[in-house]
């Protein structure tokens, strides 16, 4: 009896072992922002490279970094903003890229170099360019906002949100005050902090995930959010509009990087190269509603899409906008200011 049971167990294990082997395709794990990669592009990649793609999402560079730093993950590809790339590279978290596996880098639009601290693409390849803008319900407001000053409007009390993101949100206040969003002058940062504490009284909350849903259900009337998310919301709901604040905005370049301990670096290289095929880049741009710095892809886009200055920013907007950069030791100034904003009554 005992012998028979053992046999049965062995047979079961064999069967299980075989079936597991049979379905074992290579897996590519991506850690990305929410709704920041076209489903069709994922499917096409899975088909062509006979693999499975698993996507997990984060809602801020800081949260992503903390999770990876604590040993979480097993991811191959991560999509940090360019300022976070510097920090991750310095910490030895990133794999040096093998350019021989990335022939499509020739398609890169040189404009992308303006937004990165890694212009030689040693660790990172530009993915998409977005910005943090103001989204609002056009059906509930007589005139749309044109300035960050809208967050001082007490008549919208409890119906507005700012991003729950220390650099973006302090950056919006710094822009409004006419300072650089990379300032390391403590007085300027403190002025931004005090302004945010004033604005806070009018906010429902600091929110980086639900601003899109909240705007669509009219729970929030004015939100600070990422342009790609808000443009996606506009497609679904015609009552939603976007304003580019006149004081200027923060334009972010998000990069594709491979982690130093990626389980599948070869497939990860293939993925980065795939994303810069012009037709894939164009398809992904139209799905995410953000600009991929890929020159030949522009020709494949719809004219109306190309003319949209919320996606392809005009010279005028570029001139007054900035990109968040890594500030090394001086980050502590922002961390302290942000904590004071968050705990202020």
């Amino acid at each position: 009896m005992k012998f028979r049971l053992l046999n049965l167990a062995a047979a079961l294990m064999l069967i299980l072992g075989f079936t597991a082997c049979g379905s074992r395709k290579p897996v590519l794990r991506i850690y990305n922002w929410a709704e920041y990669l076209s489903d069709e592009v994922i499917e096409a990649f899975e088909k062509e490279f006979n693999c499975r793609v698993i996507v997990d999402v984060f809602d801020s560079n800081e949260a992503m970094y903390a999770k990876l730093k604590a040993g979480g993950g097993g991811y191959d590809i991560v999509v940090p903003s360019s300022y976070q790339v510097v920090r991750m590279a310095r910490e030895g978290m990133l794999l040096e890229l093998d350019h021989s596996q990335l022939p499509n880098l020739v398609h890169l639009d040189p404009i992308a170099v303006k937004f990165t601290q890694d212009p030689e693409h040693r660790y990172s390849v530009p993915y998409l360019i977005t910005s943090a803008v103001i989204g609002y319900r056009a059906d509930r407001m007589d005139t749309g906002p044109d300035s960050w000053a809208v967050f001082a409007d007490a008549s919208l009390r409890g119906r507005m949100t700012l991003l729950n993101d220390q650099r973006e949100t302090l950056g919006a206040a710094l822009k409004f005050l006419g300072f650089s969003l990379n300032t390391v002058n403590p007085e300027e940062i403190n002025a931004a902090r005090d302004l945010l504490i004033e604005w806070k009284a009018n906010l429902a909350k600091f929110e980086s995930e639900q601003f899109k849903n909240g705007l669509m259900s009219a729970e929030f009337l004015v939100v600070h959010g990422y342009s790609s998310d808000l443009l996606q919301a506009m497609e679904e709901d015609e009552n939603i509009s976007i304003a580019l604040p006149k004081e200027g905005l923060s334009i972010a370049l998000d990069d594709l990087v491979i982690l130093a301990d990626a389980p599948n670096p070869q497939l990860a290289h293939a993925f980065i190269n795939f994303m810069h095929r012009p037709e894939v880049a164009a398809e992904n741009m139209e799905w995410v509603m953000a600009m991929s710095p890929n020159l030949p892809a522009y020709a494949l886009l719809d004219d109306a899409f190309k003319a949209d200055e919320r996606i392809f920013f005009s010279e005028e907007i570029f001139a007054k906008s900035e990109t968040i950069f890594d500030l090394g030791e001086n980050d502590q100034l922002y961390i302290n200011a942000w904590n004071e904003v968050k705990t202020a009554p």
């Binding site: 801020s60 800081e62 949260a63 970094y65 903390a66 999770k67 730093k69 220390q166 961390i335 942000w338 904590n339 968050k342 705990t343």
Partner: peptide, 12 residues
Amino acid sequence: NVIVRRLFSDRN
């Protein structure tokens, strides 16, 4: 919530 912020946003 403060613990989470210290962990994720401050990396402390």
